[in-house]
Design a protein around this nucleic acid. Structure first.
Length: 160
DNA sequence: GCGACAG
DNA sequence: ATCTTGTCGC
């Protein structure tokens, strides 16, 4: 259900975090933060539950209106709430001539700092390195596990 | 009623 | 999210 992604994927994130045994400054979450119909996407959800700084980086748009950002790395335009006009995130070009990513505060991080951090984490690719490697790793593992797919509570993990 | 819809 | 052929630009 659009807008309720966090209820499906947050359990997985929390479980993975129990295995992390090194310092974490801030978490980059694959999805929206405040750029959400109710102002509370999965990045906010996880940040509050862990009481830890989080940034939401969506690979596509869920909510909000915006102009097209210049196709140069580092350029961004505000993502506005369609009715109130409040800025809820940033549409950021992280790699030249590549579609932008949707950055928004998750928890305890301002939008400006979120954009700066995401840019600092980008190393020539569209996604910030932590997210890029996680995406790549998961994709590869899934391709080697029969029947693996996204986590769906109702149907169990099915080996995924 | 129609279009939109994170992963 | 996943899959697949073809194409574009660096």
């Amino acid at each position: 259900m659009p807008g309720f992604l966090s209820f499906r994927e947050t359990p997985g994130y929390l479980r993975v975090m129990t295995y992390v045994d090194h310092p974490v400054d801030v978490l980059i979450v694959d999805g929206q933060g405040t750029a959400h119909p109710r102002g509370f996407g999965i990045a906010c959800h996880i940040g509050v539950l862990l009481n830890w700084p989080t940034i939401g980086v969506g690979k596509s748009r869920l909510f909000g209106r915006h102009e097209t950002p210049a196709p140069n790395a580092g350029q961004w335009v505000p993502l506005w709430h369609p009715r109130t006009g409040v800025v809820i995130g940033a549409v950021l070009t992280t790699r030249p001539r590549t579609r932008p990513v949707y950055v928004s505060p998750g928890h305890r991080v301002s939008l400006d700092r979120a954009v700066a951090i995401v840019l600092d984490c980008c190393d020539g690719y569209r996604l910030p390195e932590p997210q890029r490697q996680a995406d790549q790793w998961v994709r590869q593992v899934r391709s080697r596990v029969p029947g693996a797919g996204p986590l769906v509570p109702d149907e169990g993990n099915r080996g995924g």
